[in-house]
Write a protein that binds this DNA or RNA. Structure first.
Lengths: 110, 110
DNA sequence: TATTTAATTAAAGGATAGTTTAATAAAGAA
DNA sequence: TTCTTTATTAAACTATCCTTTAATTAAATA
C-alpha cells in the first residue's frame, strides 16, 4: 500500500480544480507547459507552480526537449488512491446491497 | 459525476493523515468524538476540527445522542473519487497491458 | 550578436489550514 | 444545584497555499 506521505501529496494535489483539469488534458496526450496553461485565465507562473505540485506528487513526469518541457501523465498515484478507496468498498457494497455490485460489474464488463 | 466543489472538498479532506486515520477507525464502526480523538497526540479541539472538515466533505455524518456525537462513515464521496479515478483506468490498463487487467480481475473475484 | 520563445525563480501579499490554550455550552449524575 | 463529561467556539499564532508582477535562464532563430 502507498505510504502516508505519498497519499498526502496525491490527495492534496488532486484537491485543486486547475490541477485536475491539467490531468484531464494530459489524459488525451502529453503537452508542454504553455499548451497546458492556455485554457486558464491565470498567469503562466501560476500554472507552472501547479505543474510542479503535480510532478512532486508523481502524477506527471517531465521530459526536456530544447526549451520545451513535455509533461506526461503518470498513473501510479492514481492507482494508489484507487487501491486506498477499495479498502472501503465492502462497506458501500454492504449498504447498497447486491444491486450496486451488479451495476458495477456491468460497468466493468462494458 | 461529482461536481468540482464536492471533489475539491473530498480530496482536501483526505489529504490529511489524521483524517484518513479517523475514517479507517470509523470503517470498524461508529464512534463518538472523544473515542476518535483518543489515539492522537493532538488536543481535542484539533480533532474536533478534523471531524468538522470530514463532515463538511460528506465523508461522515453525526448523530446527536445526549452529550455524545456519534460519528458514522459515509461512503458516497469515496465512491465519487473512485468513479473519478476510473476515468484514467484505461490509460494504466494500456500501459501495463493485459497482465494488470488480469490481476485486478482476480482481486475482484476473490 | 540580438531577438524571440518557453519556462522557471524571486519577491510579495492575501487567504486558508492546523494547532494550541482558554472559555463556553449542553447534558447527565451526585 | 454543583460537578463532571462531552464537545464546540474563540482567539491567537505559525505555516503553507495560491496568485501576481518582475526578473532571470536556456535554447532557438534571425
Amino acid at each position: 500500500m502507498a505510504d502516508d506521505d505519498s497519499l498526502n501529496a496525491t490527495f492534496a494535489a488532486l484537491a485543486h480544480p486547475t490541477r485536475r483539469a491539467i490531468l484531464t488534458r494530459l489524459a488525451k496526450g502529453s503537452a508542454n507547459v504553455n499548451t497546458l496553461a492556455e485554457p486558464f485565465e491565470m498567469s503562466l507562473p501560476a500554472v507552472s507552480n501547479h505543474i510542479r505540485v503535480l510532478e512532486q506528487a508523481g502524477l506527471i513526469s517531465r521530459e526536456k526537449d530544447a526549451q520545451f518541457r513535455l509533461c506526461k501523465l503518470e498513473t501510479r498515484p492514481l492507482q494508489e488512491i484507487s487501491n486506498w478507496t477499495d479498502q472501503y468498498r465492502h462497506i458501500w457494497d454492504a449498504r447498497f446491497g447486491v444491486m450496486g455490485a451488479l451495476l458495477r460489474n456491468m460497468k466493468d464488463t462494458d
